[in-house]
Simulated scan of single mutants.
Amino acid sequence: MSTLFVAWQAPDPTRAWFPIGRLDASTDRREYMFRYTHGALHAEAAAGFKPLIAFPDFSRKYQADDLFPLFKNRILEPNRKDFAEYLRWLDLDPAHADPIEILGLTGGERQTDSLEVFPKVRKLADGTIRCRFFLHGLRHVSEAARTRAENLTEGEPLQVAIEVNNPATTYAVQLQTTDCHLIGWAPRYLVDDLRAALLEHSTVSATVHRINRMGAPFARRVLVDLCGGVPAAFEPMTSDEYRVVAE
């Protein structure tokens, strides 16, 4: 199974994010299942979250033999003339474009709602975690840092650091060049797990996987690979807010 989580952002004033749902897809992409997580119940209590129209019951298990429209509508249509370029930005092969992989990389963001999709991070047999994501926040760094980001090269190493006074989220995961330019941040869904790993003195490293320049928006400029060892007893994304309501 491949697994994506769905996060919901509360309205002002908190703008807090909650993981509210889990989408599982079979390996052959012929079976899909959506369930709410306990994060949805936390969001309901803390910020008034209501069930999504497509999935109106917190306690129900939703199953289908095709990708649910809520998710399918967050992927660029293959008949669009810019679809091939879209996949190149993601470093995906057009002949084997997987909607789950696309959603995991793009976040399935839309201007019309407050949802974001992200992949479940799994610990591998060798005790490491590995993930790929687009650098966040490039538009918010200094002009010098943006210039430095434009000159990144594929395979270039990046430094990973925990930020403890981020004005938006308190904790954040910074990505810096080796010459100390803060060029952006890892996605928010990685913060808690990476903070736990780094507090245990684990080694986490990142490299530039791909650079998209001409025509790419800021959110698709720098594709990053991150990997690192985690404590033996540590399993990512297993806290109560990620636990499904309907087992």
Rank of each mutant, 00 (worst) to 15 (best):
G107C: 08
V245Y: 00
Y189M: 02
V141M: 04
H38Q: 14
I75L: 08
D57L: 13
L87W: 08
V204W: 01
V191M: 01
P187D: 05
L152R: 04
A233D: 14
R221A: 12
L226Y: 00
A45I: 08
D66M: 14
A54Q: 12
N212H: 10
S2I: 10
A7F: 00
L23C: 11
H209T: 09
A149W: 04
V245S: 01
L152A: 09
E109M: 12
M237N: 01
D98S: 09
V230A: 02
Q176M: 11
H201L: 10
R22N: 02
R220C: 03
N73D: 15
T153R: 12
F18C: 05
D91L: 10
E241A: 09
A145T: 09
P78W: 09
T177D: 03
A197Y: 01
V245C: 02
T238D: 07
I102R: 04
A25P: 07
D113Q: 07
R29Y: 02
T153H: 05
A47Y: 02
K50Q: 13
L41Q: 09
E116N: 03
P167G: 04
Y242K: 03
P99S: 14
E247D: 12
W185T: 01
Y242F: 15
G21M: 03
L175M: 10
K120Q: 15
V230C: 01
I102T: 08
D179N: 13
G104P: 07
Q176Y: 06
R146S: 06
G108H: 08
P231S: 04
P231Y: 02
A84M: 13
S239P: 01
E31G: 14
F34R: 12
E235L: 11
E116F: 08
N73A: 12
E247M: 09
G107E: 06
A196H: 08
A168C: 05
T153K: 11
R29W: 07
P78Q: 12
I162S: 00
Q111V: 15
P56C: 10
L87H: 07
F133G: 07
A54E: 15
H201C: 07
D28M: 08
M214Y: 10
S26F: 06
A45R: 15
G184K: 03
E85A: 12
G137S: 11
F83W: 15
T106E: 03
P94V: 13
I53E: 13
Y171D: 08
F133E: 09
R130D: 06
P56I: 12
I129W: 04
Q159H: 07
K72F: 06
R35N: 12
E31Y: 12
L199I: 04
D28S: 12
N151S: 11
R80E: 15
T3V: 15
D113T: 11
E109S: 06
S239I: 07
L194N: 00
L135V: 09
A43L: 09
D113P: 10
L41P: 02
K72W: 07
E241C: 09
H38S: 10
T170L: 14
N212I: 13
A206E: 01
N165V: 14
V160G: 04
N165W: 06
Y189V: 04
V245R: 02
D179F: 02
Y62D: 06
E109L: 13
S59R: 14
S59Y: 10
P167Y: 05
M1W: 04
E247L: 13
A219E: 12
R130P: 03
A40Q: 07
I211R: 13
E200I: 00
P167E: 07
A64Q: 14
T177S: 05
N212L: 09
